[in-house]
Design a protein around this nucleic acid. Sequence first.
DNA 1: GTCTACCATGAACACCTGTTCGATGTCAAG
DNA 2: CTTGACATCGAACAGGTGTTCATGGTAGAC
Lengths: 217, 217
Amino acid sequence: MALTERQQKILDFIGASIDKHGYPPTIREIGKDVGISSTSVVNYHLNKLKDLELLERDDQISRGLKLTAKARPMVDAGNGATVSLPIVGTIQAGLPVPVMDARTAFETDEQDMISVTREIVPRGDKVYALRVKGDSMIDALINEGDIVVMQSTHTASNGDMVAAWIKDREETTLKRFYHENGRVRLQPANPTMDPIYVALDNLEIQGKVIAVIRSLN
Amino acid sequence: MALTERQQKILDFIGASIDKHGYPPTIREIGKDVGISSTSVVNYHLNKLKDLELLERDDQISRGLKLTAKARPMVDAGNGATVSLPIVGTIQAGLPVPVMDARTAFETDEQDMISVTREIVPRGDKVYALRVKGDSMIDALINEGDIVVMQSTHTASNGDMVAAWIKDREETTLKRFYHENGRVRLQPANPTMDPIYVALDNLEIQGKVIAVIRSLN
DNA sequence: GTCTACCATGAACACCTGTTCGATGTCAAG
DNA sequence: CTTGACATCGAACAGGTGTTCATGGTAGAC
């Protein structure tokens, strides 16, 4: 069931309001923003959104609105403090990293998301997350269960931490990228380990690592 | 400048309310919680907290309250989806980890904070962050520049990743804790490395690692 | 003692706010 | 054409809510 333009606008305004002020808007504030003169109509749409499970309402409570998790991805993030990233798959040494195209992003359901603050991941465009499988990445100081946040790209600058597919080894590796003397030096994050050198055309850059998150429990 | 018990309680309640409902409380709700019968007294304390720059108020607006960044670490429950953590110091092998007492929390200014979502750090109480100095922690898959999120504690359960001070070595180490056969096995996160064994009374647990964050750029 | 800062009460007021009701218009389905 | 679902308006009401005022108690400073 799709939303009408009105309802989408109301949802967006609620999100923006919480974002900006730290609390939800009143019925009249909503009406003013979306251009509805009567409080009863806003109330009407609010109940509609509630039926769609996009909104929770606390009866008789001023500003008693809350966006449900279901509504979160449909709301204009705007200048939010957090970024929601899809976890599109897993990463391990023997397999290429999954790419994120428009389709996979859409198919990702809410269970497979992680949100992080912009302090940790400043950009949100073409950024996605991968769960680390196995312990084949310990030379990158990354272990089973870690979340790797990647930015999709096929090029890299010197010093970038990249996910690279080494063709002749049929192997994915996470290393710092340095293009020097016509070849590429891949430097492990672990300073006690030696770099490897590969030819440029033997390398396929699949993304740039922009953060690693390890959540113990 | 210290807060009175009343004011701390009000601040806590505002945080808890935002946490629980998604919006701040009204003056009367605050009064009811902290045991103040008159709205004017609550108003009085609110203005006091505003003068201390712990609170922002939107005049004439119901529930027009917002905790400032300065207030965040002093509040029991953080603000909704994110937790702000003070970065109270650095961690390296040769030094004990700094402890977070009430004083350091107060002295921390806003620059030395990091906020993370509750998905990554569920609790907020007695939790703080340390910046990793040097590469002496690579056996814990942790490197220079990483942020380690710790929970202050002096005890640990089996399997916890702890920051431990080994007395006779005068060394801090991050390892998984296993109490077995009257001694303690400290297991490195790197599965290719061997555990070390220490006597219980040679060990001082300084905190529990609950997350590691590496933000590249 | 007197003064001042602080904390508290209770009441009153005006505006804010959610709720409800009756009426109207539109538009696709039957 | 009639019907029903949907969307909108305007108005009214009751209770919620921030603000203000007069009053007074307590405790430490001078």
